[in-house]
Design a protein around this nucleic acid. Structure first.
Ligand code: MN
Ligand code: MN
Ligand code: ZN
Ligand code: ZN
Lengths: 136, 136
DNA sequence: TAGTAATTTAGATTCATTCTAATGATCTAA
DNA sequence: TTAGATCATTAGAATGAATCTAAATTACTA
């Protein structure tokens, strides 16, 4: 257990989630870096590298629970694989398919001078901007 | 066979794809409306409503081939389901998750007054903007 | 019209994700 | 503290979209 273990427990307490060994380890991993983008598989691998072995179902259960509680955001950039993001601010992404990496674009880095009219009877839920990049 | 059958054959000829019964029916369905957004499942259902029964593999083979040949664009708006789009112009989308519908946003409807700096050594491949909407 | 190359197909396979239901851990109230 | 209740974890099965396989059929070309 590293320093972050305490912070992790604190976070779980605030989210009213029982501080199980698995949840603490997952949360610790997520807060170790200031911001992180992971898939379920990536997170499982990161934990395994630290000799923490958590079942697939638990990884998914907790990523989903942490998302539902507002501690993570879901980001979709490619068919069939969900990314989870600890950057909770409204923001956008660079996605590098070749390197399978996601990077943040702060909301203030994008400004519109023209934006489409929303269809009648509808309202905006969210605006997702993905800038797909590749090596020159 | 409706009027569009001839057009469909013409299109396939230009794309250098053999005009099989299945391909003609698929292409006909896609050009019946000026613009169309379909998933593989939706297309299969549309064909079945017209008493044309085509196997799943063939639906996918042809949607992918038509995409590779540049007759369709792929659009990703939700985890795990690919949409195919006959609007070939560069454009963006409204996505209504409640109604599972995709609608076009012309490129000229969106203008940026500020856009992020692309990371060194990288270039933009594409910019995907999805405006998620829901009923008021 | 024969030979070959492309196409279609049912069913198997893959991959990410969710579900199931049995086991184990944590919490709470007495 | 502990009993009981609730919640969490897990292996493995199930799901759903998409792809693969390999055998049968169809379309093209000489
Ligand atoms: Mn630690
Ligand atoms: Mn017809
Ligand atoms: Zn992010
Ligand atoms: Zn479109």
């Amino acid at each position: 257990m590293c320093i972050d273990s305490k912070k992790a427990k604190e976070i779980l307490k605030n989210l009213k989630l029982r501080p199980t060994i698995q949840r603490i380890a997952i949360t610790e991993t997520l807060i170790k870096q200031k911001e992180i983008h992971v898939t379920a598989y990536l997170l499982k691998r990161m934990l395994a590298e630290n000799k923490v072995f958590i079942s697939r179902a638990t990884i998914y259960n907790n990523l989903n629970e942490l998302s539902n509680k507002g501690f993570l955001k879901k980001v979709l950039v490619k068919k069939g694989k969900m990314w989870f993001d600890t950057n909770l601010s409204k923001h956008h992404h660079f996605y590098d398919e070749e390197e399978e990496t996601l990077a943040d674009v702060a909301e203030k880095e994008i400004k519109f001078s023209k934006f489409p009219k929303i269809p009648n009877g509808k309202r905006i839920k969210s605006v997702d901007i993905v800038i797909n990049i590749k090596k020159i």
